[in-house]
Every structure is written in C-alpha cells, then in structure tokens.
Design a protein around this nucleic acid. Structure first.
Length: 503
DNA sequence: CGCTCTGTTGGTATG
DNA sequence: ACATACCAACAGAGC
C-alpha cells in the first residue's frame, strides 16, 4: 500500500478495515498496534524491546518487487535476532508454492485458464480456512500491556492520519490527497462498500449465504451480469478479497454450500463463468504473475521483459490519458464509468473492459501501463496480479488476442440500458437529454441540446476521437505488432518465422 | 507440420 | 426477442 499510488477513497477503505480489525481484536481482549517506518529497522527494535521470539506474516508469493525486497530484509533481520519467522500464504485457494510443486516448477505453470483448471483439479479439495482465534489464543497482558497507550501505534482515524513513508515530502503528499480529495469522500456519490471483515462477512451472507440466494449462486454467469446496474449486479466481494477481509476459501465453501442447496431445477453454471470460476481466475492470475517474475524479476505489471506480454508501440498523449482518467472523452458511457471509478472506487467488470479497451487498442492507443497505474490508485479491489492480468487481456497484449473484437463505446450498453439511467446518475449534466441521444449527445440537434441545458463542446466535450475511424486504424496497428512478435518469436531456433503471405 | 477446436463477456446486418 | 451469418481472420492446445 503505497500512498503515492493510492487514492484517498482506497486509503479510507484500508483505514476502515484496520479499525474493524482492531474492534475484532478488542472483543478478544487484544488490540491492533501499528508500527510505522522501514520494517527492517522498526521490527528488530520491537523484538528486542518486547522480547519477541516469533514472527508470523502474510506471504507475498507473486514476487512483487517491493514485497520481495521487504520480506528478504525482514527475514535476514529475524535470522540475526534469533526470531523464528513464518510466512503464511492466505491470498489464494492454494499457496502458489503448492501449485508450483504440483506442476513441477514455474516453467510448467499454466498459461491458459483451461490449463489452470486442470491443475486445480489435481490439487484435491479446497481446504477450509482455519478457525478465527479466540481470547485464550492471545498473550495476556504482558507484551500487549507495554504497548497499550503508545499513541503512535493507534489505528489511524482517517486517510490523512496514515503514517507516511518517511522520505515523502509533505507537499508531495498533499498533491495526492489534498483536503479537497479527503472532503470528497463524503460527496454526493457514496460507495456501497465499507471496509473491514464485518462488512465483508455481512456481504458474503447477503449475496451468497442468505436463504433464497441458492439459485442465483448456482446459475451465476459473470458475462451476463449487468454493467449498467445502479448497484453492483455481481457480489462486489473483490475489495474484501484483495485486502484479506475475507478468505477466498471462505467464499469458495460458501458458494459450494449455496449451490448444493439450490433446487434440482436450478440452472447450473460452470467455471470459468461461475462464482467458483471467479475465485479460480484470482489464483490463475497470481500464478502467472509469479511465473513472469520468476523468469524476469519485476517484469509483471509492465510490458518490458514480461514473457506474457506482446510488445506494442503504444502512443504517448498526456492530454488523451488525462481526458480518459477524468471522464472527459465525450463518450458518455466511458465518462460515466470513469466517474464512478473516481467517486466509488468500483465499477462493474464489463465497464472496466469498456474503458480499458477504449484507452488502449480500441481508441486512444495509450499504454496499458498508464491505465493500470490509474486503476491501481483508484480501485478498492486493486490487486497486483489481477490488475496486470486484466490489462494484458484487454489491450490484447497477452492471454486474449482477438483484437478485431472491439468494444463499441455506444452499442452494447445501449442495448442493456436504453434509457441511460446509469449515465444520468454519474453524468448529471446530461440527465435531461432524451433517450435517443444519451449515448451520443453530439448527434443531438442544437435545439435539443439547448432544451436539455447542455451544449456539446461547452458543457460536455465533443468526442475525443471518432471511434469508427480510430478503432479500424488501431486494428491494423495491432496486426503489425502481432506480425513483429511472430517474426521475433516464431522460429524455434531463433530464425525468423516464415511469414504467411495471403492474396 | 497442418488441421481442428476452443477461448468467461463484440459489432452489425439480416431474418 | 432471438437466431444466424458475416466481419477479417487472433493464439494455444491437442491430435
């Protein structure tokens, strides 16, 4: 969690999660203490001060560069201090190490979802999570007693109270989270998602476990869920999974139980579109992130050196990138999605597809890394492995290659939500336009614009590009990039592959 | 090597 | 509302 790459909204979700964790610990006679600073310096100080001999920590198995370096330094310090240190894998259904052992090294790791599914099939039954600790599991008072009252170790009350990295200048911090951005947290559009385990378990109950949900769970078909719904049409459990507020194993077994209890007549979906499938995507994505970093350290999340990523000569247009990020493209569906992202930190999966395609191969031809950085900062469910994977997919840089299948910034959602209720909610300046023009306001005659109180080019932008024109042009750029890739990688012995000439 | 099949989620025109 | 053909034609797995 690095503040310079994290919106105030997302940080607020973290703070809520920490506060809830503290409440949960207090209910068991313990409490949460937060130490700030460089872990490799702060932890040894605490170990010697408090006589600590055991360190248990959450394993980062993807090889994300910051986490890898941090863990290596902390483990060295622990060895030197005689502290027994134990990492525990908790983010995935199975530890990535266990997958690696099963497939005989990361070189054999699955590169497709189908191959991953067969690997999972060989892993056995997904384990249940261990029980939550009870009061008796915590040391009493001793260690805790000495820390209680240390003001600098209290749980922060707001994003601005989070401890900053020491080298970060105050001016830099404020440019990311000025008082305005923090104040905006209580703005008109409020996310439905509150941080913390309590909220996670309530949501798990409401979406999966509650009586009456069985048939919905059994029939869940991700691509058919509505991207234009005014409240999430999916479970929206991803922010909780990404922060560890709920275990994927918990969700797995909740889905199992609900589907088993569904009536015989209920429709049954299967992976990868089912709810189990959604959890499987997470593990698959984590596995390929580890595989990329195993080949070239630090290559996941970027184009260079990434063995899963096509090299594409993306453009660099700061103005186009800013228009996209700030919801000023002139395409209401895109701008509404980007507005929801900034306001709530969440958008539907298919909305993410639409805006990611628009930024990269579809329309603006901007680098997917720039889009990924914006998503990482804004999304409550931002996740290193999943974010990287999905940007590769949507930009046709990896895992998905049918670049001639391009999302229209108008058509699909118009079919789903012909009156544009979703757009009217997030772009109130367009709210009085007739249905006919809500997805394409530039087509509205001047009199209609005037009557609706919105002049295109003045109150709302003209389209930043002509989708019909640029999407065609971009497809041929993708064809070029693919041809280059083939020439570089096609020959088994390093020789360029013969190009197939048609016509 | 060549072939077929599959791949979570396209758009447009036509019936 | 739904089904189908067509667009121009991807990669990866498996035989």
């Amino acid at each position: 969690f690095q503040q310079r790459r994290c919106s105030a909204r997302r940080a607020a979700f973290l703070v809520e999660s920490l506060q809830d964790l503290d409440r949960g610990l207090r209910a068991r006679g313990a409490r949460l203490h937060i130490a700030s600073g460089d872990p490799a310096e702060v932890l040894p100080t605490l170990w010697s001060r408090l006589g600590i001999q055991y360190l248990s920590f959450d394993a980062d198995e993807t090889g994300e560069p910051y986490a890898r370096r941090r863990d290596a330094r902390v483990l060295t310090a622990a060895r030197e201090a005689g502290v027994r240190a134990e990492p525990h894998a908790t983010e995935t259904l199975w530890s990535l190490e266990a997958y690696e052992a099963k497939c005989g090294g990361m070189g054999n790791a699955p590169g497709t979802m189908t191959a991953y599914q067969s690997l999972l099939g060989r892993m056995g039954k997904v384990l249940a999570p261990v029980d939550a600790p009870v009061a008796a599991d915590y040391p009493s008072p001793g260690v805790q007693g000495e820390l209680v009252g240390a003001a600098e170790m209290l749980v922060p009350s707001s994003p601005l109270a989070l401890p900053w990295p020491r080298e970060t200048a105050r001016a830099e911090v404020e440019s990311v989270w000025g008082p305005a951005e923090v104040a905006a947290l209580s703005s008109r559009v409020v996310p439905a998602l509150r941080g913390g385990e309590s909220a996670a378990l309530e949501r798990l109950e409401a979406k999966i476990q509650a009586p009456g949900r069985e048939a919905w769970v059994a029939a869940y078909d991700k691509p058919k869920t509505a991207p234009t719904a005014l409240t999430p049409s999916t479970t929206a459990l991803s922010p909780y999974l990404s922060l560890g507020c709920v275990s994927p194993r918990d969700m797995w077994h909740a889905v199992d139980a609900a589907a088993a209890a569904a009536p015989k007549s209920a429709a049954r979906s299967k992976p990868p579109v089912s709810l189990h499938g959604q959890l499987m995507w997470r593990d698959f994505n984590n596995l390929v992130a580890r595989a990329a970093n195993d080949s070239v350290p630090g290559s996941w999340g970027q184009m260079e050196g990434n063995r899963f990523c096509r090299q594409v000569a993306w453009g660099e247009d700061k103005a186009a990138l800013a228009a996209w990020a700030e919801g000023r493209t002139g395409y209401p569906w895109i701008d509404a999605c980007m507005t929801q992202l900034r306001a709530e930190g969440w958008i539907h999966h298919l909305g993410r597809h639409a805006v990611a395609c628009f930024l990269t191969r579809g329309d603006l031809w901007q680098h997917w890394e720039a889009g990924a950085a914006h998503f990482e900062a804004q999304l409550l469910d931002a996740d290193y492995a999943l974010n990287g994977f999905n940007w590769l997919w949507l930009s046709c840089s990896g895992f998905f290659y049918q670049y001639f299948r391009c999302y229209s910034p108008v058509a699909f959602q118009k079919k789903k939500d012909p009156s544009g209720a979703y757009i009217r909610k997030y772009l109130p300046q367009l709210a009085r336009l007739p249905d006919k023009y809500i997805y394409e306001p530039w087509k509205a005659p001047p009199a209609v614009q005037k009557a609706a109180g919105v002049i295109i080019g003045q109150d709302y932008p003209e389209p930043i590009v002509d989708h019909a024109v640029v999407s065609k042009a971009n497809m041929s750029k993708m064809a070029d990039a693919y041809a280059k890739h083939k020439a570089l990688n096609g020959g088994g012995s390093g020789a360029p592959a013969k190009k197939k000439q048609k016509r």
